[in-house]
Design a binder for these strands. Structure first.
Lengths: 147, 147
DNA sequence: CAATATTTCACCACTTTTCCCCACTCTGCC
DNA sequence: GGCAGAGTGGGGAAAAGTGGTGAAATATTG
């Protein structure tokens, strides 16, 4: 079971390269994937998590309009990543655009996935989220989701 | 199991030639087919997927008006493709017309198939879809995506 | 039927991008 | 202070994408 935790501030160079925090590298070693995430960030999934996502998609019928659109965005926005000798990955242009990644990136571990944020967007998002941290926690436990 | 993912921006020349992204070529090596897709794009299926489509169609009753229309367009628009030495295919004129392909094309991987879009149409489509990406994600997976 | 015109296809060459390797800097630790 | 590990930047080789040219096949016309 992978466990990604922590926040790292890294930079993306002109070629779209991003260093993966060294603490995350071992868990990713075999195979991993990046794709459009929710809330304008990128998701990075280790192989087993990726396959869990695929399983969800295989249930969707080609004839449903929404399902088509969703899988088009999901898969067209995905890429398999490889670490270079320095522990970096190459983020394709379309993903950098989606997440507004130019120079300063925030890499965070969220349990079974990694997320990559543009610095500005993360500042806004985490600021808001922090304020309502307790509120959200309360909402979640009233539903069927148990923490 | 083929896995086509990613977005590529290629151009179609006057002769109707389109370069297939090199990452897709290996998966297509033996045999593959192109035809009219849904939403004004072209579908490209590797051989095994093509045969799965055939199987699906053979289940449809000949008496259903919509089924007749759909399979007519699907099969009359189909052609077997071959890669030239540079990794390009030749897209027949009627398919280019169907998908409005003139110069700039977007090639995307959608898991078990490849799609070819005119740049303009894709921009419109993906722009709309992106707006509802998160909504649809929630609807389709009803909460399987972690918060 | 032959000669010419036209289209199609395959090959070749060029340009651009990508990827990989190496070198440097900074930080923390011994 | 020096060493090791982590992150950053740049340069060169290889691959990927694009455009063009020539040969073969087909069609057309005298």
């Amino acid at each position: 079971m992978p466990m990604f935790i922590g926040t790292y501030e890294h930079s993306i160079d002109d070629k779209g390269r991003l260093a993966i925090p060294s603490k995350f590298r071992d868990e990713l070693k075999d195979r991993f994937f990046a794709t459009r995430g929710l809330d304008k960030c990128l998701f990075i999934f280790p192989n087993d998590e990726w396959e869990r996502q695929l399983a969800e998609f295989s249930k969707l019928p080609l004839t449903m309009r929404d399902a088509r659109a969703y899988s088009r965005l999901f898969f067209s926005g995905a890429c398999e990543c490889e670490l270079d000798k320095q522990g970096r990955i190459n983020i394709p242009a379309y993903l950098r655009e989606y997440a507004d990644l130019t120079k300063d990136a925030i890499v965070i571990g969220v349990m079974n996935r990694i997320e990559v944020w543009s610095r500005e967007i993360w500042m806004g998002y985490s600021g808001d989220a922090e304020k309502s941290y307790e509120e959200v926690a309360e909402k979640l436990t009233h539903g069927d989701i148990n923490i």
